[in-house]
Write a protein that binds this DNA or RNA. Structure first.
Lengths: 208, 208
DNA sequence: ACGATATCTGCATTCAGTGCAGAAATGCAA
DNA sequence: TTGCATTTCTGCACTGAATGCAGATATCGT
């Protein structure tokens, strides 16, 4: 899962410290809560200077989204790997399903924590939404490029926005009257159910 | 446009100060930029203590969204005022078109400033997205309530999310291309295109 | 081993935001 | 109007995120 393979000592060290920061933060956020954990605490737990923290992550929130580029890249790859007869909608569905949109691998600890903090901490939610919008834009750009005759840039933006918006809107609803359920299996099932409901109107059209 | 009509002296004064804060901030943000304007500057310009600022607005960003409740309320009212034969989609379109979604009255100064800062300042964008998501949830809840047989809560969330997401996504695209050119006609056309992209799949379901 | 270069770290600083307690203003009743 | 209760304002002290800077440290390539 991690690629410390062939790099500089420098880069390997850096990756190790980075991971240590994420781990430490996960631990501390779970134990003491997001707000009551300071950047200084996290840095100390990973045994680096407080100042140095900010050369790894631009802000405290960033710590919760360590591989956001990675996911976008996966979606972009999925678009690039389209078949000759695929419609934009089909490709988009596949790209977003594979990469999870915002229904993550709910199995791992950080993802679960992140999901909880997105609900509870405004600053985290704000950052998550920014990242989402950013990802949308990139995906839309690639989709438009992949289907030049069928989509201009504006329509691509609208289409991707509609998809992601629908899923987000539906998931939001099922999440809010779901208590503190930390059962990841159940959560995942609920999210997937909401996703398929959200995308249902498009699925009917597959033939067009 | 403003209701300083019949109130306590206390409340009138409070409203006046609040407005003074918004005005002062608008002025200062335009002149010096958002980041380089401190809360202390704004408070001083409105002639109140720095500490007091935070009893009017919970944060510096909040200053840029003074009537966000108002807009949601308008949408909710529009839903309540539905006709007997309206479909959910029709009502939603009317509710959001009337109230502007996020294609504001580009006429007034604060709205224009806000739009610019949403693009330029991450913190502001984050807050804007939060407010938007919040509004979506409320509208979806009311829509589901207004059409109990045709929409469950999850589907309502998806529908509203698709609509708002599409418009946001499309507008985003045109905004990044044309730097400052806020041609209202063009924008209107984009919004309509996004609307049709987002809602077309839902139209088939009208009968259901 | 050595110099060039990148990274780390402490220090000082700015600024947003909060809690508190006393001062000031307002509302209300007589 | 006066007096009293309640709300609001304000300064003060404090926390914590984030940034700039400059000197110490570590790594790289040779």
């Amino acid at each position: 899962m991690r690629y410390h393979g062939r790099m500089n000592l420098r880069d390997r060290k850096r990756a190790r410290v980075r991971q240590a920061l994420v781990d430490a933060a996960t631990e501390l956020f779970e134990r003491d809560g997001y707000e009551r954990t300071t950047v200084a605490d996290i840095a100390a737990a990973a045994d680096i200077g407080t100042r140095t923290f900010f050369s790894y992550f631009a802000s405290k929130e960033e710590l919760l989204f360590p591989e956001s580029d990675h996911r976008v890249q996966a979606a972009v790859d999925a678009i690039a790997a389209r078949g000759p007869d695929d419609s934009p909608v089909e490709v988009l569905v596949r790209a977003l399903y594979l990469t999870g949109v915002d229904n993550d691998d709910l199995t791992d600890r950080l993802a679960a924590l992140r999901l909880r903090l997105i609900r509870e901490v405004p600053a985290v939610r704000g950052r998550a939404l920014q990242i989402q919008l950013d990802a949308q834009q990139q995906i839309a750009a690639h989709l438009a490029e992949a289907f030049p005759e069928q989509l201009d840039k504006v329509r691509a933006g609208a289409l991707v926005g509609a998809f992601v918006g629908a899923v987000t809107g539906a998931v939001q609803v099922v999440m809010e009257d779901l208590p503190e359920h930390h059962d990841p299996k159940k959560l995942r099932a609920v999210v997937e159910e909401a996703t398929s409901v959200a995308l249902e109107p498009w699925m009917a059209q597959r033939g067009r």
